[in-house]
Design a protein around this nucleic acid. Sequence first.
DNA 1: ATGAGGGCATAAGCTGGAGTTATGAGCAAC
DNA 2: GTTGCTCATAACTCCAGCTTATGCCCTCAT
Lengths: 346, 346
Amino acid sequence: MSNRREDGAAGVTEADAGGGAQGGGLTGGPAGGPAGGPAGVSAGDAHLAHRVPELGALQLLLAVARLGSLGRAAAELGISQPAASSRVRAMERQLGVGLVERSPRGSRLTDAGVLVTDWARRVVEAAEAFDAGAQALRDRRDSRLRVAASMTVAEYLLPGWLIALRRERPDTAVSLLSGNSAAVVERLLADEADLGFVEGLTAPRGLRGAVVARDRLVVVVGPDHPWARRRTPLAPAELAATALILREEGSGTREVLDAALAEHGGLAAPLLELTSTTALKAAVASGAGPAVLSELAVAEELAAHRLIQIPVEGVDLRRALRAVWRSGQRPTGPGRDLLSLTRRVQ
Amino acid sequence: MSNRREDGAAGVTEADAGGGAQGGGLTGGPAGGPAGGPAGVSAGDAHLAHRVPELGALQLLLAVARLGSLGRAAAELGISQPAASSRVRAMERQLGVGLVERSPRGSRLTDAGVLVTDWARRVVEAAEAFDAGAQALRDRRDSRLRVAASMTVAEYLLPGWLIALRRERPDTAVSLLSGNSAAVVERLLADEADLGFVEGLTAPRGLRGAVVARDRLVVVVGPDHPWARRRTPLAPAELAATALILREEGSGTREVLDAALAEHGGLAAPLLELTSTTALKAAVASGAGPAVLSELAVAEELAAHRLIQIPVEGVDLRRALRAVWRSGQRPTGPGRDLLSLTRRVQ
DNA sequence: ATGAGGGCATAAGCTGGAGTTATGAGCAAC
DNA sequence: GTTGCTCATAACTCCAGCTTATGCCCTCAT
């Protein structure tokens, strides 16, 4: 962990965070999702931004790791070498840990740097998803592919698709309209969109479509709810008889749930009605009661055990996710590319 | 989407991105992980940081969404109300989309704002994990709980635990040492750490421990690899006979794999040996060949289909993740808190 | 040996973004 | 009408980060 810096004040180079090189990694954890996800963003530390380097710095760190040189990393990001040097040093001072081992032959990450870089990668990946989505939201009219997607698809799936699409067809400009399924259908019929994505039990009338994925609704409760300690699956009638926290009337999730429980007595009067999935999850997590949500919407919370999934027996809560288009307007060009992507990248 | 702003130049307030309120969300997707994850960070767009608002702005947006007022959000982040106002406006200009509907009675998110805020939440959550990890890396000697963890635990699991711990015991300062399993054991025996986390088949000699989770090694290939189209599970002998991309000798993953395949003829000579999990995943994704990695390390890549998991029959590739401590030094106080967390938050 | 080249650090100067305080305007409820 | 909440604008300040210019150190090749 030698470091050429000799000045007193500046660099706190504690660097090495452990024994050997990262050779002996044995790893552990449960099956399924990306465990250990961060807890929810509630009130949260106000000064997070002061303790986490900004995106440019994190990207720079990734570039240094990949290219093995501050100078080359600087070039890739389009800044000067001294700027890169100073940014990395600022980051090291901010974190209180040496990240990069400089040598006249280049730069390598320290052990701590490897760890920090891995955490940084997650932030940058989230930022890329943000960017992909936001860009589609901006490029409104003048884009080659106009996509209309339901809220949840737009939120959870589309950014990943767009990144993959950009990787294969960098010149494709995509614009995104998002609303409920009815709005998606409307946009397609009005020729304001080329390709739509909706969820539901059946394909919308007047449109052609293809199932690109499946989804399931799950019953979730907060960790302190009595159900969280249940061992036996929930009976449909029991679910139907329970007051749930629900999205407002007209929500697709609620519709599907209604249909599934119709033969078991129908939904009980709701315990609470909320308008956003986020608010709903927060209410459930804080113990207000059980809710039924898309698996997709609660994957992170389940992995971090902020929410507990309760198995239900004897009810089919699966739904299809469909790509849809106007009859006779089977997608070509960029639309076809995106469509084929959705079959590979879920 | 009324907006009080009247000046010409400044605000591009395209705002609304869809039909109705976000009521009709029907949702879809496959089982398992957080699908639709972003693609890997390779060369990446240089100017990502110019297109994505910085963390403080994203946090501000979340606060506005939660509190319903720019002023209150500003107060929570410890900045003045005009600063918040200007930041949000800058963000709207940057993204080219109206995010917040201002009114004399407060502020609400627009439809597009809801979407953007959800994407922003992911970035902020990743940043919180970064912060939790980095803080533990810094607070070296003077902390109340000194944790030693193997590289992979430190990378994938610990940040989540630390966030949860901070939630319950805000005053607990944790320091993190990370290295291979041997180094972790060494630190514990030298009384330089209070609690350790290692993966492996058996508990280390001289230490007490408890299994806190389980993990599995999985065989993965790039999407273009012939195996990706396979329908039948891999036979152990077939896996053993195949040249794989592996971590260097001494890696825990390699050790476990070696043990599991011993009775099937032992590992073939490696196709390639790499020193970091990241480099390994990149090599596999680009089609260099198959590799065996912790489920934990490839969860995101599997979800985004950048890597394909190949089932293997007849070999047990599971491992235990253990918390360990010195005999007679059963963790108390903060250590006990963390330990009990690991059983709930995976 | 000795010079060329790559890599990083330092120094000095500039610029712009983001913050601050002070103030005004719109709307609601009392 | 007045009080109180909201947000917007204006003028000013200041610091963070960039750039260019330069120097040192090390390695490698001649």
